[in-house]
Design a protein around this nucleic acid. Structure first.
Lengths: 215, 215
DNA sequence: CGAATTTATTGCGGATCGGTACAAAATGGA
DNA sequence: TCCATTTTGTACCGATCCGCAATAAATTCG
């Protein structure tokens, strides 16, 4: 959209870190309670510049979230899909999640999507679609990982992989909420670890891969 | 607070159904996005009357939520604590939850607490405390039920009851979010059923109570 | 240096925000 | 009937909301 060698006055802001600052405001205050003035102050951009650069408030939010997702997707997907051990993959993935949800000076900010726009999702169709898409992405991601685990023989083929994926998504949803409710990092980590252990037990996961015995 | 035989002009509204209408607005729009004008229109009360009767916007929300909780607590607690079978108790409890989260013409409104004030919880200490209290109540409730199940011999005494309770709380959190993301009643019911089954499997639940065998 | 282009700044507009002052209306008690 | 009491309706407060028009400043190209 913005070419490198432009003619006019050079911009004084860095779009990337402006969106990062904007997302911080949204996470702190929630979507509706974040005004364009808040965003303007946080990004050090005048309100018209904000508008010209990113569009309206919802567009700003969407682009900020997209940037965040693109940044964090790499580490998370690596943990979840590249790690051969299902248990370790889940542990690393949710360690990343907890770290992301806790980050923020003093206040645990939770998930930039789940924790921020849940309140507005029923009233605004655009926001509702955004939330639904996020939930859907998480579901398919865990379903895919469970299918891989079945193929790898880590869990039995007749296991309820969809149900197990829903449980893992539930853990993510729960962590987002608990972070928002003031849960601390150690608390969330402990919950995630025991949760994973129990999910794997329900899935009939054979912890030591060599000793998998079907049925 | 309000005595029955008062002297002055009789009120033209019913506080109970005014709070019900107010909660509906909060559930539809989210906390911040719900204005006193919205509440005024929904309750058919002038804004000063609203203020005189219930107080702040936050106070209105809190009293509306409290009324809702008091109303629904009976049915839910009965399902969870009076039903002897752990499985049936959980199924009934979450059937109530799903029904409550889905209710609402057209739009699934989710949980009046979890789905509504998550966004504002980090910025407003009062709201944060409200959310934290709700999460805490759910946790202790499930922990208590799991202790009962251990005492009744339904699950083993060395099971991770706290972790299992956290999973059940996670189901509730997840259902609140999914309802908000547009999930339908049947979808949520299906998720709840398979979730319960898997949790009980992880807990080592002996489905037929007569055939409980320790260790 | 002038023209063109892009961004930054100022300021406003119309709406809405939460909250309240004040007087009219409606009742019970004396 | 007249007063005390309570609720209702109107009108308004200052602050803030989102969005944009108009203008000033800074840069590149010709």
């Amino acid at each position: 959209m913005e070419r490198k060698l432009s003619r006019g006055r050079p911009r004084e802001y860095d779009p990337e870190q402006a969106l990062t600052a904007a997302l911080g405001e949204f996470r702190r205050r929630g979507y509706t309670a974040t005004s364009l003035d808040h965003l303007s102050e946080a990004t050090d951009m005048a309100r018209p510049s904000l508008y010209a650069a990113f569009g309206n408030k919802f567009e700003i939010y969407r682009r900020a979230v997209r940037q965040y997702a693109d940044e964090s997707a790499g580490r998370r997907n690596h943990a979840l899909f590249e790690e051969p051990s299902l248990r370790k993959g889940l542990e690393d993935y949710f360690a990343e999640i907890v770290a992301a949800y806790i980050s923020g000076e003093g206040q645990p900010l939770g998930c930039p999507i789940l924790s921020v726009i849940s309140g507005e999702a029923a009233a605004d169709p655009l926001i509702g679609a955004e939330l639904a898409a996020a939930v859907e992405r998480t579901d398919v991601q865990f379903r895919r990982r469970m299918s891989m685990a079945v193929d790898a023989g880590e869990i039995s083929g007749d296991a309820d992989t969809v149900g197990i994926a829903a449980m893992l998504a539930g853990l993510q949803h729960s962590l987002a909420l608990r972070a928002r409710a003031g849960g601390t990092g150690p608390e969330l980590s402990r919950i995630a670890r025991s949760y994973i252990t129990l999910v794997l037990k329900a899935a009939g996961y054979a912890d030591h891969q060599g000793t998998v015995r079907p049925r």
